[in-house]
């Protein structure tokens, strides 16, 4: 009887974000010379705020080691939480956000993604500034295990060369 009960309990616990063995950890980042890049965030009031990678890192910073669809070997990504950035501009509770990349690519990300998963807005890879050729300088990263387990995620959530965020009307 113990084994099924334990299994069921584990399944319940693993299915919740809070008790997940969270791979994302807070980290303090020393200043670094970043690749030139700008992420504009349009707030709930319509105001636009431009962030360089260094300015973004003024939000609480985190570290996440994971593979990506374009990296077979895991890399250590560092950056800030998308949820924190959105919260700072009053659009965390928006139903969805529209994200545009430097190459004019754009996508819509529903709220369930940043509510249920830790979406890291990465500015560094393996301790170095993120580069465009490595799909930076600003890239949305989700832990690959959580990405695979979730039924809500798609590859379009992992935006690279992110340039602008606004609430989806």
């Amino acid at each position: 009887m113990k084994i099924p009960v334990f299994s069921a309990l584990s399944a319940v616990l693993l299915s919740t974000k809070i008790l997940w063995a969270d791979p994302i950890t807070p980290v303090d980042l020393a200043p670094i010379s970043h690749t030139d890049a700008t992420l504009v965030v349009v707030g709930a009031d319509g105001s636009e705020t431009a962030y360089s990678p260094s300015q973004l890192e003024e939000f609480p910073t985190y570290s996440l080691t994971t593979a990506t669809p374009w990296r077979d070997a895991p890399a250590r990504f560092e950056g800030v939480l998308l949820a924190d950035v959105l919260a700072a501009h009053g659009i965390r509770e928006a139903d969805a956000i529209s994200v545009r990349a430097e190459n004019d690519y754009s996508t819509v990300i529903p709220r369930v993604i940043w509510d249920s998963l830790d979406v890291l807005v990465a500015t560094r890879v393996n301790g170095k500034p993120h580069t465009r050729r490595a799909r930076g300088p600003i890239q949305f990263i989700i832990d690959m295990d959580a990405y695979t387990a979730s039924g809500d995620t798609t590859e379009s959530n992992l935006v690279w060369m992110a340039a602008r965020i606004s609430a989806e009307q």
């Binding site: 374009w70 430097e102 190459n103 580069t131 465009r132 050729r133 799909r135 690279w160 060369m161």
Partner: peptide
């Protein structure tokens, strides 16, 4: 020159994606 480098990087990533 910066724009040229960025455009090259974008094409580079596109080539990387295409290759993958």
């Amino acid at each position: 020159k910066s724009d040229f480098a960025n455009a090259t990087d974008v094409l580079f990533v596109r080539l990387d994606s295409l290759r993958a």
